[in-house]
Design a protein around this nucleic acid. Sequence first.
DNA 1: CAGAATCCTTATCGATACTG
DNA 2: CAGTATCGATAAGGATTCTG
Lengths: 107, 107
Amino acid sequence: MRKNVSGCSVEEAMHLLGGRWRLLLVSYLVDGPKRFNELRRDVPGISQRMLTLDLRALEEAGLVLRTVYPTVPVKVEYALTEDGKRLKYVVAVIQEFGLWLKQRDAA
Amino acid sequence: MRKNVSGCSVEEAMHLLGGRWRLLLVSYLVDGPKRFNELRRDVPGISQRMLTLDLRALEEAGLVLRTVYPTVPVKVEYALTEDGKRLKYVVAVIQEFGLWLKQRDAA
DNA sequence: CAGAATCCTTATCGATACTG
DNA sequence: CAGTATCGATAAGGATTCTG
């Protein structure tokens, strides 16, 4: 992502969430924890690479918790942290706008 | 911007608003119409080029209205359309999250 | 004043192959 | 299963110059 954000709160937030997949990923995590390949299947079009990178970024931001179950084979679960759950509202509002946008442009 | 978005509403919305400046620009327009150079001064760090491009994109999406006053020299005003005013809520929520994020990371 | 045009750098993303 | 590593493509953004 971009470096050196000015510090405006909108820019700060968009810097963290503005990529192609991040908010979308969060929207898949609001329903509860998901495994890596589960997200890979469910998020349409995402590559393995971006899934890894963006989950890592969200984890580093303290919004997502990564839990490794030392089974064989390993099982890794991603869940929103308490901080990450603040994004539920963001996702809901964006989702609503996107939905309205689609319906408007369909007509 | 990216072509061929899958059609998911979150992706659709982020495709339109996910750039570095667009939501930020909208956040400056919620207080009322602004002139070109006014935005240029007030939005910290934006280049003339991006200001033009993103205002045009928002205009094309029907979210911003561009009004040219045929004075000498010309005066151009940008304002949110009724559709664009739907973004007030989006901006508010993002702004709130960004603010919380900054405060959390400051501590 | 409000831009358009051009050139260029960097960020973001995707495809593929490989691994503990 | 859940990743890494590498490479290349494209998109986003910046700097500069010029104009009605």
